[in-house]
Design a protein around this nucleic acid. Sequence first.
DNA 1: CATAAAATCTACCGTCCGGTCGGTTTGTTT
DNA 2: AAACAAACCGACCGGACGGTAGATTTTATG
Lengths: 199, 199
Amino acid sequence: MPSLPKGRQRQKQLYDAAARLFAAQGYHATSLRELAEALGLNKSSLYHYFDSKQELLYQLLDDYISEALEGIQALCGDGQAPEEKLAAFMRYYTRFYARDLDRLALLVNEVDSLEPRFRKVLEKKERRYLAALTDIFEQLRGQGRLKQVPSTVAAFAFFGMVHYTFKWYRPKGKVSPEELSDMFWEIFGRGVLRPREGA
Amino acid sequence: MPSLPKGRQRQKQLYDAAARLFAAQGYHATSLRELAEALGLNKSSLYHYFDSKQELLYQLLDDYISEALEGIQALCGDGQAPEEKLAAFMRYYTRFYARDLDRLALLVNEVDSLEPRFRKVLEKKERRYLAALTDIFEQLRGQGRLKQVPSTVAAFAFFGMVHYTFKWYRPKGKVSPEELSDMFWEIFGRGVLRPREGA
DNA sequence: CATAAAATCTACCGTCCGGTCGGTTTGTTT
DNA sequence: AAACAAACCGACCGGACGGTAGATTTTATG
């Protein structure tokens, strides 16, 4: 009862392997034959676990984005000061992806590989994602704490900084995810925030 | 004599169309049949202009990266103060790519689509690219003007901010490339630089 | 206007792709 | 051990892929 039922276990292996391959080589450059081989399975056996390659990618991405969205919304709910909210958001967000770069690579690169039917669903969730951050910026602006920069520019500047990490950052290297999140907050936060008047 | 010879003109059309398609759909997701159709040509006619699809991508990327590298090295040569050098670098760099997002998308996304033989050449140039920026950071550190952040982290944070623009930024929108480069410099520069002592 | 080079086309190749089909093995339940 | 579903496999399909060979048209040049 504590461990996963056998079938689910296999399914998780499959999803993990797919994520790894898609992240490393790209969705289009990865064949189902390759995926099957990585699992020691026959290609046709894969179809026991999903209906099509597109649907496999969609399920991966939807799982990831939904989980991230939940985490973010949990952070943004309560009545903290906007500056604390921003710091919490950015540190959580950076750590979350610095620890799972495959996930990040998939979300950044492969949403465009989906058919419109699937892509639209995810883009909707991405917009809520973005809105969570721009909302915080607007609260800061209301308090006169934001520099003269459009909220969307600020938000995408931050997303760019973090989303690009999968291209160069390695969590087992000299800089831990915790340290990275501190550095990003220092670089970005101090840059965007105007010092309190009379400080 | 002022205008291009006919063949070169066609070649430029071809490169432009390839860049547009590869940027919009990705290298693997774009077929040579598609490219030929976009040019009103038969697929086999393409091979008059290049030897293989790989070589086409390589030529595109090598042209782009070489041009960017020249521009950067021209900026970094003279004896300005490091802070001015950093500002010049970042503004130039942001504007350069904000004006040609297809180029940017290709350089960010498709270097990995090259066979190792080609990829290695470009990665070498990319490293000189990165070194140009980290050098400036090290000069700043020597003057005590850099916050406690590794140069590579600072450099990639900046590259991330800029390289991600192709995902969201549109140069014909409300924010011009000039304005964007100012904003990025404000966000990033003020964040990374420690105020002068006694300021 | 002949000629050679540049540019383009038609027809085709072998290969790999995602996906299907029907059947076999494995494991569970009664 | 009968019955059934879950898990898996071998053989195959149509089609798209990148790429090739050779002929043909267009264009510039003497």
